[in-house]
């Protein structure tokens, strides 16, 4: 294209790009700097009290038991809820993609509904569903002979409860991506396999799964990034309890930064989260390369 007047380009790019630079890139750099300072509630009032303390915040994190607890909880959540979500999404996509299925769009709509709804609101709904005495979950489990469980009050069950909610809320999103992936697999592959007499399981293992590999990697990266940012569910349902068993990294960052105003310390927690997400993404990209 001709007539690339630089002024015109700047006119189109400037609003969005400058907004992103000022309100995204500069804060990222500022957060990095703040994480090497003792920025706290006194600094908020008087900036001259700010001191650079090198890696002190980071070394303090290493000895902070609560931080390790939040790290452990978040990993528990990501490692269990992530694969579980993806497995449920893929299963639902396979069911909906079957040639035998009727009312596809209706089922798809029902499965997708939790995705668009407000997380805080559904977390509140589930908090009552999990109620040990009156909750409908224990009622249904009682019908098949399972004794009532104190879902959110029992340190063992609290995190699984949040995982169940997360899978219920999110599986529809990846399901849509998987359906698109399934529809891109050429029918001839299955027809050829039919001629060779392959079983349904063999077709799934040797055609569907390999053909879906790029989709699966994409889905697992976005799921992992999202799940590492766990916050609203424990905030609404358990406040991090019982016994800190559901305290997440982001919740700990929020508490340190915005409740106790230990902003230097909180910034270092945010950066650890970033590094974890970054490494997790790199690992998955590497897996993708190896598969190719």
């Amino acid at each position: 294209m001709k007539a690339n007047n630089i002024k015109t380009v700047i006119f189109f790019l400037a609003p969005a790009v400058s907004a992103i630079f000022i309100f995204f890139f500069i804060p990222v750099i500022a957060a990095f700097i703040i994480s090497f300072t003792d920025f706290d509630i006194y600094t908020l009032g008087d900036l001259s009290t700010l001191r650079f303390i090198g890696f002190d915040n980071y070394s303090k994190l290493l000895n902070d038991e609560l931080f390790w607890t939040s790290l452990e909880n978040t990993f528990y959540f990501v490692v269990v809820a992530g694969p579980l979500s993806i497995a449920v999404s893929l299963s639902a996509a396979l069911l909906l993609n079957s040639k035998l299925t009727k009312f596809k769009s209706l089922f798809r709509l029902a499965y997708f509904l939790p995705v668009v709804t407000t997380l805080v609101a559904v977390a509140i709904v589930w908090r009552f569903i999990y109620h040990p005495n009156f909750g409908i979950l224990n009622f249904f489990l009682g019908l098949v002979g399972i004794n009532p469980i104190d879902w959110l009050g029992d340190p063992f069950w609290a995190m699984p409860s949040i995982i169940i909610l997360a899978v219920w809320k999110n599986f529809g999103y990846n399901m849509i991506i998987f359906i698109a992936g399934l529809q891109n697999i050429p029918d001839e592959l299955y027809e050829a396999a039919d001629i060779e007499g392959a079983s349904a399981l063999q077709k799934f293992r040797h055609i569907t799964l390999p053909m879906l590999a790029p989709t699966t990697i994409f889905v697992s990266i976005i799921t992992m990034i999202g799940y590492f940012q766990l916050f609203a569910e424990p905030y609404v349902m358990t406040q991090g309890g019982p016994l800190n068993k559901t305290l997440s990294i982001v919740q700990y960052m929020y508490q340190e930064g915005f409740r106790w105003w230990n902003m230097g310390y909180s910034a270092s927690i945010a950066f650890v989260l970033f590094v974890i997400i970054f490494i997790g993404t790199l690992i998955q990209f590497r897996i993708q390369k190896i598969n190719k």
Partner: peptide
């Protein structure tokens, strides 16, 4: 280059920006 910079920064979680953004 600018576009690629923007795309690759999508990996940075929003929580990282929250403290300085709040101060700003």
């Amino acid at each position: 280059k600018l576009f690629n910079l923007l795309i690759s920064s999508m990996i940075i979680p929003a929580q990282v920006t929250m403290l300085p953004l709040f101060l700003m």
